[in-house]
Amino acid sequence: MSLRLSTVILPVDPWHGGGRAKWQRAEELGFHAAYTYDHLSWRSFRDGTWFGALPVLTAAATATDRMRLGTLVTSPNFRHPVTLAKELISLDDISGGRITLGIGAGGNGFDAAVLGQEAWTPRERADRFGEFVPLLDRLLTEGAVSQQGDFYTAEEARNIPGCTQRPRLPFAVAATGPRGMRLAARYGQAWVTTGDPKLYETGTPEQSVGALRGQIEKLGKACSEIDRDPADLDRILLHGFTPDRNGPLESLDAFVDFAGRHRELGFTEIVVHWPIPDSDFAADPTVFESIATEALAQLG
């Protein structure tokens, strides 16, 4: 099974102060895609520089030519499907059809309460996500949409001419639970996971592989329920949240071993964080670039 290698570039650099150069270097290194987080702020970066995902991706689209671009991931926490659809159609046009929308249910944290709303329960997040994704699908594939939902409403929402990619830009749906897996099976062109968060602090790499295998089995079950071939979906692993943390980025050999084990599970794409000094995503830039340019060739 072939494997693609991508990166995620956090929006922490001013565009003219290193941001543009990172996105262009990612394309030069041959990454399949470069993604960014879609948050208003995030964890340990909350009190530092943090730019908006969609404007950054728009700039990246004009600074690159071949590499795919996208969010990893967007959520309903502060997005509405009507306005998001308009921005995505515009971004897909500007990029020449290179956008992938990573999308998930969101979670607790800064984004969940920044608009002044009470934090949603896990069930409400799932309910909202279950309404958000189908409506966004309609908005990106139909010229005019009206829909009255429990959470989201569209009244004669016009989205002409639609996406450059047809019938719409691809969705990469982040999910681990049954409801999210069903959304991935029905609407996704890809499925995204970071692994099992319960294993991050005290689990082992072997336990993580077992948990990921179980997630892939659940995805297969969700696909079988609607008679969809699971092989139709790409399977994306966002690295950095499994028990081995950044160990696979310590050397080329370590990454090749990590990537090989996860390719055997059925993953088709692994996404690594662009190094950020003095952070959870610190890594040796020289090793990182050697991984980008040599790892896939060593996997064969």
Rank of each mutant, 00 (worst) to 15 (best):
F78W: 01
F78K: 00
F78Y: 00
H80V: 01
H80N: 10
H80G: 01
T83Q: 12
T83H: 14
A85C: 06
K86F: 03
E87K: 03
E87N: 07
E87V: 02
E87L: 05
I89V: 15
I89Q: 02
S90N: 13
L91M: 06
D93S: 14
R98Y: 11
L101F: 03
G102Q: 02
G106N: 01
G109E: 00
F110L: 03
V114T: 14
L115C: 06
L115N: 10
R123P: 00
E124P: 01
E124S: 05
R125P: 00
A126M: 09
G130T: 12
E131W: 03
F132S: 09
V133F: 14
P134N: 11
R138D: 13
L139F: 14
L139S: 09
L139P: 10
T141H: 09
T141I: 10
E142M: 12
V145T: 15
V145W: 11
V145Y: 12
Q147K: 05
G149V: 08
D150A: 11
F151L: 01
F151T: 02
F151H: 10
Y152I: 00
Y152N: 00
T153H: 10
T153Y: 01
E155M: 12
E155W: 13
A157I: 00
R158T: 03
N159G: 03
I160T: 12
P161L: 14
T164S: 09
Q165V: 15
Q165W: 15
P167M: 13
L169K: 03
F171R: 03
A172K: 00
V173L: 10
A174C: 06
A174H: 04
A175Y: 06
A175R: 07
P178R: 11
R179S: 14
R179D: 07
M181T: 10
A185Q: 03
A185I: 01
R186E: 15
Y187Q: 06
G188W: 06
A190F: 05
A190Q: 07
W191H: 13
V192M: 15
T194L: 15
T194A: 07
K198W: 05
Y200M: 13
E201V: 13
T202A: 14
T204N: 08
Q207S: 12
S208F: 02
V209D: 09
G210D: 15
A211T: 12
L212R: 04
G214I: 04
